[in-house]
Amino acid sequence: MADTTVITFGTFDVFHVGHVRVLNRAAEFGDRLLVGVSSDQLNLAKKGRRPVFTQDERMEILTNIKVVDGVFLEESLELKRQYVEEHQADILVMGDDWAGKFDFLNDICKVVYLPRTPSVSTTAIIEHITTIA
């Protein structure tokens, strides 16, 4: 029986408990978890700001997370299909803030949307830090 490969994507900036929880839940869907880390340029285009940590730093952090088996750079949202095919992923796991947006990939993999951890977000953490600094 072949191993099941799970793939997920994100910025994973200012790593926090919500990131840990989504990675742990994603890993439960298969035998191998691969993470596409949004490039600095992609993050700037998506969110209108550069990440606090560089793409290399964020990739290094994720490489050292126990449940993560591999990390690669995501340079475009439009290349999701290519990334899934290239990494031979069986399951795509995303946060439910993306619900429905990747259903078009159901022809090549199972798509699962997980609820986000309530009241934890990188943006909220950054805003909190700037108010106490």
Rank of each mutant, 00 (worst) to 15 (best):
V6G: 04
G10A: 04
T11A: 03
T11E: 09
F12M: 03
V17N: 04
H19P: 08
V22T: 00
A26V: 14
A26E: 10
A27W: 11
E28T: 02
E28S: 12
F29H: 15
R32P: 02
L33D: 00
G36R: 01
L42M: 06
L42S: 01
A45M: 15
G48Y: 10
G48N: 12
Q55G: 12
D56P: 00
E57Q: 11
R58I: 06
R58C: 04
M59W: 00
M59R: 11
L62C: 05
L62Y: 06
T63Y: 07
T63A: 14
N64I: 00
I65Y: 00
I65R: 01
K66A: 12
D69F: 07
F72H: 01
S76I: 03
L77I: 11
L77R: 10
L79K: 14
R81W: 06
Q82C: 09
Y83C: 02
V84D: 00
V84K: 06
E86P: 01
D90V: 03
V93H: 00
V93K: 00
V93Y: 00
V93N: 00
G95M: 05
D97I: 01
A99V: 12
G100N: 11
K101V: 13
K101D: 14
K101T: 15
K101A: 11
D107H: 07
K110N: 15
K110F: 03
V111Y: 08
V111I: 07
V112D: 13
V112P: 10
V112L: 13
Y113E: 06
Y113L: 04
T117L: 13
P118N: 02
S121Y: 06
T123H: 09
T123R: 15
I125M: 06
H128G: 10
H128E: 15
T131I: 01
A133P: 08
A133Q: 12
A133N: 14
